[in-house]
């Protein structure tokens, strides 16, 4: 319930922010084609249950401390939101991508990324998401999100990203 409320607020804000763009591109919303009862977000510019919906309205990633792979309290909250969304859209399957920052060695970081992805997958499973809907992949330090070389950036790169399979 709370999730939907947040979604609705976010969607309304988004719609306000994007309305001029929408007019310019002729993208006039009304994309509720999933047949669910989310009538309150029917005017959103992203389709409920879509990858964009998940990314924008739930949040697709959690972060890890240096050399760690345990799910922090903050990450737990985020993953609870992810689990709730996934339970709302039971047909969706996801891949959890594990990543590391650039301040480690390549091979070890592949293993570390795999640990992080599995930490997230295990947590989502514990929250009731069926295991068969989750797969994991590690990119080690190969795919940084933030490209500067400082701790602020590295902390954004030590992440696990839940991506919706197409």
């Amino acid at each position: 319930m709370r999730i939907q409320l947040i979604s609705a607020v976010a969607a309304a804000l988004l719609l306000a922010a994007c309305s001029s763009d929408d007019a310019a591109t002729g993208n006039t919303a009304g994309t509720n084609t999933t047949g669910t009862d989310n009538s309150q977000v029917a005017a959103a510019s992203v389709a409920p249950g879509s990858a964009e919906d998940f990314k924008q309205n739930v949040g697709d990633r959690v972060f890890f401390a240096l050399d760690r792979y345990d799910v922090s309290a903050e990450a737990q909250q985020q993953l609870q939101k992810q689990a709730a969304w996934l339970q709302q859209y039971p047909a969706v399957t996801v891949t959890v991508e594990g990543h590391a920052d650039e301040r480690g060695t390549r091979e070890y970081n592949l293993a570390l990324g795999e640990r992080r992805a599995n930490s997230v997958a295990n947590y989502l499973t514990a929250l009731g998401v069926d295991k068969s809907r989750l797969s994991v992949i590690s990119y080690g330090k190969e795919r940084p999100e933030c490209t500067e070389s400082n701790e602020a950036c590295w902390s954004q790169n030590r992440r696990a990203v839940t991506t919706i399979n197409r």
Binding site: Y69, A111, N118, S119
Partner: peptide, 9 residues
Amino acid sequence: MSMAQSGNT
């Protein structure tokens, strides 16, 4: 080589 599965390598 290494194999990683279920968080263990």
